[in-house]
Simulated scan of single mutants.
Amino acid sequence: MSGFALHMLFDVFAWAAAALAALWLTRVEKIAFPPVTTELGYVAALVLGAGTGAVLFGTLNMIVSGVPAVARSIEGAIAGAILGVELYKQATGVTLRTGARFALPLAVGVAVGRIGCHLAGIEDFTHGTPTTVPWAHDFGDGIPRHPVQLYESAAMAAFAGVYVINVLNRRAFWIDQGFYLAVGVYGLQRFVWEFLKPYGTILGPFTVFHLLSVALVVWAGFMLATAPADHGEPIRRGA
Rank of each mutant, 00 (worst) to 15 (best):
F4P: 00
A5V: 14
L9A: 15
F13R: 01
A14K: 02
A14F: 06
A16G: 05
A18F: 08
A22F: 13
E29C: 13
K30C: 10
F33C: 04
T37I: 07
G41V: 10
A45M: 01
A45D: 05
T59K: 07
M62A: 09
G66N: 10
P68C: 10
V70E: 03
A71P: 07
I74Y: 11
I74R: 05
E75W: 09
G76Y: 01
A81S: 15
I82Y: 03
V85T: 03
Q90Y: 13
T92V: 12
G93P: 08
L104S: 09
P105S: 11
V110H: 10
A111M: 08
I115L: 10
H118R: 02
P130E: 08
P134Y: 00
R145W: 05
R145I: 10
H146I: 06
P147I: 02
L150Q: 05
Y151M: 01
Y151F: 11
A155T: 07
A158F: 13
Y163R: 01
Y163M: 11
I165L: 15
N169Y: 11
R170K: 15
G178K: 00
F179L: 09
F179M: 09
F179Q: 07
Y180C: 07
A182L: 09
G184E: 09
L188R: 00
L188H: 00
Q189K: 04
R190W: 03
P205F: 03
H210P: 12
H210M: 10
V218T: 05
W219F: 13
A225C: 13
A225S: 14
I235P: 02
R236A: 13
R237N: 11
G238H: 10
G238C: 07
